[in-house]
Design a binder for these strands. Structure first.
Lengths: 253, 253
DNA sequence: TACGATTTTTGACGCACATCAACACATTTT
DNA sequence: AAAATGTGTTGATGTGCGTCAAAAATCGTA
């Protein structure tokens, strides 16, 4: 997304006092920092490179520092299906925590740096700091609910509703500085957007054009400005307005 | 599904030696039994009753003993979307382990008995028995990969391919005795099947008719016999034949 | 057994979106 | 600067499946 945030560790974790179990850990805050403390060195990649493929038994998950990554699988008939786009600060590849191998492939969309977190070290951390474990559960559970949301999109929404939701979703995940202007610089092609939303790339292009004609957006290839957030939200079926959107998750499997 | 298996605890857990971390626990096998040991008493429900609704902060997850349950959500436009059908032996509602409230609703499809597992007790168990924690991770991670699969179905497959996959999926999850005959006794309506597969109920009905005409199935309302497994598998895009299908998961969020 | 309610089937019709096919850009290469 | 390559736009056409409507079958229950 042509964005450079500082190290993702600089992000403050919004909230997290895990209710219920009285966690013994001293630091109930800062689990993200704890997790990041076992992250390997930043690694650079360019578009087209892969961090792992479905089936790889590489035992680590990843955090995006800058750039963006797509998580995807291949249909039985050979078609690509994108499961998620991962932006700076977000974890992905979490499924190796429970499965012997990755269930999806991770491909880089633009010049990107990521850091790896070795699964064994995460497991070791569980013992010492229960809060980390709760954090991981939060991430996994949250991801499942995100996928439920995506299922509803794929099976019930029209093309324009999907696109509106997609644009708003990206927008909401931008780091503070760029979020204000509501200008997206997409790192993915029309084809990839279509792969994610279950649409043909031509449909993506056409709907985007219509949004422009109707004053919802201002599009110049991969630079998209969101002009009428209210109408976009209405289209996407989101609650109107809503200033402070809680973006607690920051994870991907 | 009009099925009565013995207590789900009688199911043997297929495999699970968690690679990597050398688990200290004495019983690396039998985590399922351990989990079941904290399950509450069996509770009976009839069609239409609910175990929880999306948003409920009921801190427990559930196991189906007999009968069946649907997990679903409501779209912004008020439409129902079914995320999963839960059969005997399967866990559901796992997302409360990480989220403060349930992310979906659980409705009963037929006379059904379930048992509840209180989240606090599961958490307490983590400390004592790390293997239980790995098991939970397995369940969550596996569920995520299942949802990836379902995303591919919803966005890339034709109606007949979806239906074929659905029927085979149910079939593979039947307890041993009935699986042999490949005769399904569905507890869900055409409408509910459509809700799950992203199709109109009329389409479900029509495709089912076509399957019958083509000799793939023999349908009498909710009793469906799978006659030509090979062709069904080919349609669904599954590997041909494949005798012993590993059904490791047995979980739902 | 008979009644009403729900579910399922079947047909007719229309539309949202995929597909096919050029063409227009933009970006990189030589 | 021209050529090559990938990406995006736009139009024409087709179709898979949704929608609407009504009859038929099944189920629940008196």
């Amino acid at each position: 997304m042509n964005i450079n945030v500082g190290t993702s560790a600089s992000r403050t974790t919004p909230f997290l006092p895990v209710r219920g179990t009285p966690t013994i850990s001293a630091t109930s805050r800062g689990t993200r920092e704890l997790l990041m403390s076992i992250a390997g060195p930043p690694r650079r990649y360019v578009r087209g490179q892969h961090l792992f493929h479905a089936g790889d038994s590489d035992p680590s998950l990843y955090v995006v520092e800058s750039g963006s990554v797509k998580l995807y699988g291949i249909t039985s008939s050979g078609a690509e299906q994108i499961f998620a786009f991962c932006l700076p600060g977000e974890f992905f590849g979490l499924d190796v925590l429970g499965e012997p191998a990755h269930g999806s492939s991770a491909g880089v969309l633009e010049p990107t740096t990521v850091r790896a977190l070795p699964v064994p070290e995460i497991r070791a951390m569980y013992r010492r700091i229960p809060a980390v474990q709760h954090r991981i559960h939060r991430l996994l559970a949250h991801r499942i609910n995100e996928l439920y949301e995506q299922m509803m999109v794929l099976s019930k929404k029209r093309a324009d509703e999907r696109l509106a939701g997609f644009l708003l979703g990206i927008d909401a995940r931008l780091p503070e500085p760029q979020r204000a202007a509501h200008i997206l610089r997409l790192s993915m092609s029309r084809y990839e957007i279509g792969c994610y939303l279950g649409l043909a790339l031509e449909t993506v292009s056409r709907i985007l054009r219509r949004f422009d004609d109707e004053g919802l957006t201002r599009t110049r290839t991969r630079r998209i400005q969101l002009c009428d957030l209210e109408r976009l939200r209405a289209l996407a079926g989101l609650a109107l307005s809503g200033p402070a959107r809680t973006t607690p998750g920051i994870l991907f499997a």
